[in-house]
Design a protein around this nucleic acid. Structure first.
Lengths: 155, 155
DNA sequence: CGTTAATAGTTAAACGATTTAATAATTAAA
DNA sequence: TTTAATTATTAAATCGTTTAACTATTAACG
Protein backbone atom coordinates (compact mmCIF):
# COMPACT_ATOMS: atom_id res chain seq x y z
CA UNK A 1 0.00 0.00 0.00
CA UNK A 2 1.28 3.45 -0.88
CA UNK A 3 2.61 5.74 1.83
CA UNK A 4 0.17 8.48 0.94
CA UNK A 5 -2.81 6.22 1.44
CA UNK A 6 -1.52 5.16 4.84
CA UNK A 7 -0.94 8.78 5.75
CA UNK A 8 -4.39 9.70 4.57
CA UNK A 9 -5.98 6.93 6.58
CA UNK A 10 -4.12 8.17 9.65
CA UNK A 11 -5.22 11.73 8.99
CA UNK A 12 -8.82 10.72 8.58
CA UNK A 13 -8.85 8.42 11.54
CA UNK A 14 -7.35 11.02 13.83
CA UNK A 15 -9.76 13.59 12.51
CA UNK A 16 -12.54 11.09 13.09
CA UNK A 17 -11.44 10.36 16.62
CA UNK A 18 -11.38 14.07 17.34
CA UNK A 19 -14.58 15.23 15.70
CA UNK A 20 -16.98 12.36 15.69
CA UNK A 21 -17.72 12.49 19.38
CA UNK A 22 -18.82 16.07 18.97
CA UNK A 23 -20.93 15.22 15.93
CA UNK A 24 -22.54 12.47 17.99
CA UNK A 25 -23.29 15.05 20.66
CA UNK A 26 -25.03 17.20 18.06
CA UNK A 27 -26.93 14.17 16.85
CA UNK A 28 -28.23 13.39 20.31
CA UNK A 29 -29.22 16.98 20.98
CA UNK A 30 -30.75 17.45 17.55
CA UNK A 31 -33.95 19.41 17.03
CA UNK A 32 -35.98 19.33 20.24
CA UNK A 33 -32.94 18.49 22.35
CA UNK A 34 -32.89 15.90 25.09
CA UNK A 35 -30.52 17.32 27.73
CA UNK A 36 -28.59 14.07 27.47
CA UNK A 37 -24.91 14.01 26.70
CA UNK A 38 -23.61 11.63 24.09
CA UNK A 39 -22.18 9.36 26.76
CA UNK A 40 -25.39 9.39 28.75
CA UNK A 41 -27.41 8.52 25.68
CA UNK A 42 -25.05 5.73 24.82
CA UNK A 43 -25.31 4.36 28.33
CA UNK A 44 -29.10 4.37 28.21
CA UNK A 45 -28.81 2.72 24.82
CA UNK A 46 -26.65 -0.09 26.14
CA UNK A 47 -28.85 -0.76 29.14
CA UNK A 48 -31.96 -0.61 26.99
CA UNK A 49 -30.58 -3.19 24.59
CA UNK A 50 -29.31 -5.41 27.39
CA UNK A 51 -32.49 -5.04 29.46
CA UNK A 52 -30.38 -5.03 32.59
CA UNK A 53 -26.66 -4.99 33.30
CA UNK A 54 -23.99 -4.32 35.93
CA UNK A 55 -21.36 -1.62 36.36
CA UNK A 56 -18.59 -4.09 35.70
CA UNK A 57 -20.16 -5.07 32.40
CA UNK A 58 -20.46 -1.44 31.32
CA UNK A 59 -16.90 -0.69 32.35
CA UNK A 60 -15.61 -3.56 30.24
CA UNK A 61 -17.82 -2.68 27.32
CA UNK A 62 -16.91 1.00 27.36
CA UNK A 63 -13.28 0.35 28.18
CA UNK A 64 -13.18 2.63 31.21
CA UNK A 65 -12.69 2.21 34.96
CA UNK A 66 -15.63 1.22 37.10
CA UNK A 67 -15.55 4.52 38.92
CA UNK A 68 -16.27 6.32 35.65
CA UNK A 69 -19.38 4.18 35.33
CA UNK A 70 -20.44 4.97 38.88
CA UNK A 71 -20.19 8.67 38.03
CA UNK A 72 -22.22 8.49 34.86
CA UNK A 73 -24.82 6.23 36.47
CA UNK A 74 -25.11 8.67 39.37
CA UNK A 75 -25.94 11.48 37.00
CA UNK A 76 -28.53 9.38 35.18
CA UNK A 77 -29.94 8.22 38.51
CA UNK A 78 -30.29 11.81 39.70
CA UNK A 79 -32.32 12.50 36.58
CA UNK A 80 -34.56 9.57 37.46
CA UNK A 81 -33.65 7.61 34.34
CA UNK A 82 -32.05 4.57 35.93
CA UNK A 83 -32.94 2.16 38.71
CA UNK A 84 -30.46 0.26 40.85
CA UNK A 85 -31.45 -3.15 42.17
CA UNK A 86 -29.30 -5.32 44.44
CA UNK A 87 -29.00 -8.99 43.57
CA UNK A 88 -30.54 -11.02 46.39
CA UNK A 89 -28.19 -13.96 45.92
CA UNK A 90 -24.96 -12.02 45.56
CA UNK A 91 -25.40 -8.82 47.48
CA UNK A 92 -22.28 -7.23 45.96
CA UNK A 93 -23.97 -6.99 42.59
CA UNK A 94 -26.17 -4.07 41.51
CA UNK A 95 -28.39 -4.44 38.45
CA UNK A 96 -29.03 -1.37 36.35
CA UNK A 97 -32.30 -0.94 34.47
CA UNK A 98 -34.11 1.96 32.85
CA UNK A 99 -37.02 3.58 34.63
CA UNK A 100 -40.15 4.36 32.63
CA UNK A 101 -38.89 7.91 32.29
CA UNK A 102 -35.52 6.60 31.10
CA UNK A 103 -37.16 4.40 28.52
CA UNK A 104 -39.32 7.20 27.25
CA UNK A 105 -36.47 9.66 26.94
CA UNK A 106 -34.30 7.10 25.22
CA UNK A 107 -36.90 6.19 22.65
CA UNK A 108 -37.66 9.82 21.96
CA UNK A 109 -33.99 10.42 21.26
CA UNK A 110 -33.77 7.33 19.06
CA UNK A 111 -36.75 8.40 17.04
CA UNK A 112 -35.37 11.88 16.52
CA UNK A 113 -32.06 10.47 15.37
CA UNK A 114 -33.83 8.09 13.04
CA UNK A 115 -35.85 10.88 11.47
CA UNK A 116 -32.75 12.93 11.02
CA UNK A 117 -30.76 10.16 9.39
CA UNK A 118 -33.65 9.51 7.03
CA UNK A 119 -33.30 13.04 5.69
CA UNK A 120 -29.78 12.54 4.40
CA UNK A 121 -29.46 8.80 3.90
CA UNK A 122 -30.66 9.21 0.31
CA UNK A 123 -27.30 10.75 -0.51
CA UNK A 124 -25.69 7.34 -0.05
CA UNK A 125 -26.42 4.06 -1.66
CA UNK A 126 -26.92 0.94 0.35
CA UNK A 127 -23.72 -0.82 -0.72
CA UNK A 128 -21.65 2.23 0.20
CA UNK A 129 -23.11 2.29 3.70
CA UNK A 130 -22.68 -1.45 4.13
CA UNK A 131 -19.08 -1.24 3.01
CA UNK A 132 -18.43 1.67 5.35
CA UNK A 133 -19.85 -0.18 8.31
CA UNK A 134 -17.85 -3.28 7.52
CA UNK A 135 -14.58 -1.43 7.18
CA UNK A 136 -15.26 0.54 10.32
CA UNK A 137 -15.89 -2.61 12.29
CA UNK A 138 -12.75 -4.23 10.96
CA UNK A 139 -10.69 -1.16 11.75
CA UNK A 140 -12.15 -0.89 15.19
CA UNK A 141 -11.46 -4.55 15.88
CA UNK A 142 -7.90 -4.28 14.63
CA UNK A 143 -7.27 -1.20 16.78
CA UNK A 144 -8.74 -2.95 19.78
CA UNK A 145 -6.46 -5.93 19.28
CA UNK A 146 -3.45 -3.69 18.72
CA UNK A 147 -4.22 -1.82 21.89
CA UNK A 148 -4.30 -5.00 23.90
CA UNK A 149 -0.99 -5.89 22.34
CA UNK A 150 0.81 -2.69 23.28
CA UNK A 151 -0.64 -2.46 26.69
CA UNK A 152 0.20 -6.05 27.32
CA UNK A 153 3.85 -5.01 26.94
CA UNK A 154 3.55 -2.37 29.62
CA UNK A 155 2.31 -2.32 33.23
CA UNK B 1 -32.99 2.11 1.54
CA UNK B 2 -34.22 -0.54 3.93
CA UNK B 3 -35.08 0.34 7.51
CA UNK B 4 -32.67 -2.20 8.92
CA UNK B 5 -29.75 -0.66 7.03
CA UNK B 6 -30.65 2.79 8.33
CA UNK B 7 -30.94 1.42 11.84
CA UNK B 8 -27.61 -0.32 11.50
CA UNK B 9 -25.93 2.84 10.27
CA UNK B 10 -27.33 4.71 13.26
CA UNK B 11 -26.16 2.00 15.63
CA UNK B 12 -22.69 1.97 14.15
CA UNK B 13 -22.42 5.72 13.99
CA UNK B 14 -23.45 6.16 17.60
CA UNK B 15 -21.08 3.40 18.62
CA UNK B 16 -18.40 5.12 16.58
CA UNK B 17 -19.05 8.47 18.13
CA UNK B 18 -18.81 6.91 21.56
CA UNK B 19 -15.76 4.71 21.15
CA UNK B 20 -13.58 6.25 18.52
CA UNK B 21 -12.38 9.08 20.70
CA UNK B 22 -11.07 6.58 23.18
CA UNK B 23 -9.40 4.52 20.44
CA UNK B 24 -7.77 7.71 19.20
CA UNK B 25 -6.52 8.31 22.72
CA UNK B 26 -4.94 4.86 22.72
CA UNK B 27 -3.43 5.54 19.31
CA UNK B 28 -1.77 8.72 20.54
CA UNK B 29 -0.45 7.09 23.67
CA UNK B 30 0.74 3.99 21.85
CA UNK B 31 3.96 2.23 22.76
CA UNK B 32 6.32 4.76 24.40
CA UNK B 33 3.50 7.10 25.32
CA UNK B 34 3.62 10.83 24.79
CA UNK B 35 1.68 12.26 27.75
CA UNK B 36 -0.50 14.05 25.24
CA UNK B 37 -4.25 13.68 25.21
CA UNK B 38 -6.01 13.05 21.95
CA UNK B 39 -7.27 16.62 21.84
CA UNK B 40 -3.85 18.04 22.60
CA UNK B 41 -2.28 15.94 19.88
CA UNK B 42 -4.91 17.01 17.41
CA UNK B 43 -4.34 20.65 18.31
CA UNK B 44 -0.59 20.33 17.77
CA UNK B 45 -1.40 18.58 14.52
CA UNK B 46 -3.57 21.39 13.27
CA UNK B 47 -1.08 24.09 14.17
CA UNK B 48 1.75 22.09 12.68
CA UNK B 49 -0.07 21.71 9.38
CA UNK B 50 -1.16 25.36 9.35
CA UNK B 51 2.25 26.62 10.45
CA UNK B 52 0.52 29.28 12.52
CA UNK B 53 -3.07 30.05 13.45
CA UNK B 54 -5.37 31.92 15.82
CA UNK B 55 -7.73 30.84 18.59
CA UNK B 56 -10.72 31.91 16.56
CA UNK B 57 -9.62 29.75 13.66
CA UNK B 58 -9.19 26.73 15.94
CA UNK B 59 -12.55 27.32 17.60
CA UNK B 60 -14.29 27.36 14.21
CA UNK B 61 -12.37 24.37 12.96
CA UNK B 62 -13.00 22.30 16.09
CA UNK B 63 -16.54 23.56 16.49
CA UNK B 64 -16.13 24.66 20.11
CA UNK B 65 -16.19 27.98 21.97
CA UNK B 66 -13.08 30.09 22.02
CA UNK B 67 -12.73 29.68 25.76
CA UNK B 68 -12.27 25.95 25.24
CA UNK B 69 -9.38 26.74 22.94
CA UNK B 70 -7.85 29.10 25.47
CA UNK B 71 -7.97 26.29 28.01
CA UNK B 72 -6.34 23.68 25.79
CA UNK B 73 -3.72 26.16 24.56
CA UNK B 74 -2.91 27.06 28.17
CA UNK B 75 -2.21 23.43 28.97
CA UNK B 76 0.01 23.05 25.91
CA UNK B 77 1.71 26.34 26.69
CA UNK B 78 2.45 25.20 30.24
CA UNK B 79 4.14 22.15 28.76
CA UNK B 80 6.27 24.44 26.61
CA UNK B 81 4.88 23.13 23.34
CA UNK B 82 3.26 26.29 22.01
CA UNK B 83 4.32 29.89 21.54
CA UNK B 84 1.96 32.88 21.54
CA UNK B 85 2.86 35.90 19.41
CA UNK B 86 0.83 39.10 19.23
CA UNK B 87 0.18 40.56 15.80
CA UNK B 88 1.91 43.93 15.58
CA UNK B 89 -0.71 45.38 13.22
CA UNK B 90 -3.79 44.13 14.99
CA UNK B 91 -2.90 43.78 18.63
CA UNK B 92 -6.06 41.82 19.44
CA UNK B 93 -4.77 38.85 17.49
CA UNK B 94 -2.51 36.16 18.96
CA UNK B 95 -0.71 33.79 16.62
CA UNK B 96 -0.10 30.25 17.82
CA UNK B 97 2.95 28.32 16.66
CA UNK B 98 4.75 25.20 17.84
CA UNK B 99 7.96 25.55 19.79
CA UNK B 100 10.89 23.30 18.91
CA UNK B 101 9.82 21.01 21.72
CA UNK B 102 6.27 21.00 20.40
CA UNK B 103 7.45 20.13 16.92
CA UNK B 104 9.64 17.35 18.18
CA UNK B 105 6.94 15.80 20.37
CA UNK B 106 4.39 16.02 17.59
CA UNK B 107 6.62 14.36 15.01
CA UNK B 108 7.57 11.63 17.45
CA UNK B 109 3.89 10.90 17.98
CA UNK B 110 3.18 10.94 14.26
CA UNK B 111 5.99 8.55 13.57
CA UNK B 112 4.81 6.14 16.26
CA UNK B 113 1.31 6.23 14.86
CA UNK B 114 2.62 5.63 11.36
CA UNK B 115 4.68 2.64 12.44
CA UNK B 116 1.69 1.24 14.26
CA UNK B 117 -0.68 1.64 11.35
CA UNK B 118 1.86 -0.05 9.08
CA UNK B 119 1.64 -3.17 11.20
CA UNK B 120 -2.04 -3.73 10.52
CA UNK B 121 -2.67 -1.97 7.24
CA UNK B 122 -1.94 -5.20 5.38
CA UNK B 123 -5.28 -6.50 6.58
CA UNK B 124 -7.01 -4.02 4.29
CA UNK B 125 -6.68 -3.47 0.60
CA UNK B 126 -6.14 -0.08 -0.87
CA UNK B 127 -9.55 0.28 -2.51
CA UNK B 128 -11.27 -0.56 0.77
CA UNK B 129 -9.37 2.15 2.58
CA UNK B 130 -9.98 4.68 -0.16
CA UNK B 131 -13.68 3.91 -0.14
CA UNK B 132 -13.78 4.21 3.65
CA UNK B 133 -12.14 7.61 3.58
CA UNK B 134 -14.47 8.86 0.88
CA UNK B 135 -17.60 7.74 2.65
CA UNK B 136 -16.34 9.15 5.92
CA UNK B 137 -15.76 12.54 4.35
CA UNK B 138 -19.16 12.53 2.71
CA UNK B 139 -20.86 11.52 5.95
CA UNK B 140 -18.96 14.14 7.87
CA UNK B 141 -19.90 16.82 5.38
CA UNK B 142 -23.56 15.80 5.41
CA UNK B 143 -23.68 15.81 9.21
CA UNK B 144 -22.02 19.20 9.31
CA UNK B 145 -24.58 20.62 6.92
CA UNK B 146 -27.46 19.00 8.81
CA UNK B 147 -26.19 20.42 12.05
CA UNK B 148 -26.10 23.93 10.64
CA UNK B 149 -29.63 23.36 9.46
CA UNK B 150 -31.05 22.35 12.85
CA UNK B 151 -29.13 24.93 14.79
CA UNK B 152 -30.15 27.58 12.32
CA UNK B 153 -33.72 26.93 13.46
CA UNK B 154 -32.87 27.54 17.09
CA UNK B 155 -31.06 30.28 18.99
C1' DC C 1 -14.42 -23.51 60.72
C1' DG C 2 -11.63 -19.36 60.11
C1' DT C 3 -8.44 -16.77 57.73
C1' DT C 4 -7.11 -15.03 53.44
C1' DA C 5 -8.37 -13.89 48.23
C1' DA C 6 -10.92 -12.06 45.17
C1' DT C 7 -14.88 -9.47 43.43
C1' DA C 8 -18.53 -5.53 42.97
C1' DG C 9 -19.24 -1.24 43.69
C1' DT C 10 -18.40 3.39 45.74
C1' DT C 11 -15.87 7.54 47.29
C1' DA C 12 -12.40 11.15 47.07
C1' DA C 13 -9.12 13.90 44.83
C1' DA C 14 -7.32 15.39 40.72
C1' DC C 15 -7.25 16.66 35.81
C1' DG C 16 -8.94 17.65 31.02
C1' DA C 17 -12.48 19.45 28.02
C1' DT C 18 -16.40 21.85 27.59
C1' DT C 19 -20.21 25.74 28.10
C1' DT C 20 -22.08 30.27 29.41
C1' DA C 21 -21.44 34.82 30.91
C1' DA C 22 -18.64 38.61 31.89
C1' DT C 23 -14.53 41.34 30.94
C1' DA C 24 -10.32 43.83 28.80
C1' DA C 25 -8.11 45.46 24.93
C1' DT C 26 -8.20 46.79 20.48
C1' DT C 27 -10.02 48.04 15.94
C1' DA C 28 -13.80 49.43 12.71
C1' DA C 29 -17.90 52.10 11.66
C1' DA C 30 -21.26 55.73 12.18
C1' DT D 1 -15.69 60.71 18.71
C1' DT D 2 -18.75 57.87 20.33
C1' DT D 3 -20.54 53.36 19.44
C1' DA D 4 -20.00 48.49 17.30
C1' DA D 5 -17.73 44.66 16.57
C1' DT D 6 -13.83 41.57 17.16
C1' DT D 7 -10.06 38.83 19.67
C1' DA D 8 -8.83 36.73 23.39
C1' DT D 9 -9.14 35.73 28.29
C1' DT D 10 -11.13 34.71 32.93
C1' DA D 11 -14.41 32.67 36.20
C1' DA D 12 -17.73 29.40 37.55
C1' DA D 13 -20.02 25.33 36.54
C1' DT D 14 -20.62 20.62 34.61
C1' DC D 15 -19.22 16.17 32.60
C1' DG D 16 -16.13 12.37 31.91
C1' DT D 17 -12.10 10.35 33.19
C1' DT D 18 -8.07 8.15 36.15
C1' DT D 19 -5.81 6.42 40.35
C1' DA D 20 -5.96 5.02 44.94
C1' DA D 21 -8.25 3.83 48.96
C1' DC D 22 -12.21 1.84 50.98
C1' DT D 23 -16.65 -1.15 52.18
C1' DA D 24 -19.22 -5.02 51.75
C1' DT D 25 -19.67 -9.40 50.27
C1' DT D 26 -18.39 -13.94 48.48
C1' DA D 27 -14.99 -17.69 47.35
C1' DA D 28 -11.02 -20.56 48.37
C1' DC D 29 -8.42 -23.43 51.03
C1' DG D 30 -5.90 -25.21 54.72
Amino acid sequence: MSDTVIQELIDRYIELSFSVHRRGEALVKCQIGSDLTNDQHYTLRYISKAGSCTSTELAEEFDVQKSAITAIINRLWEKGLIKRTRDENDRRVVYLTLTDKGNELFYQAEERIYRLVETFITKFDQSEIKQFIETYEKLNQVLKESKELWWGNRA
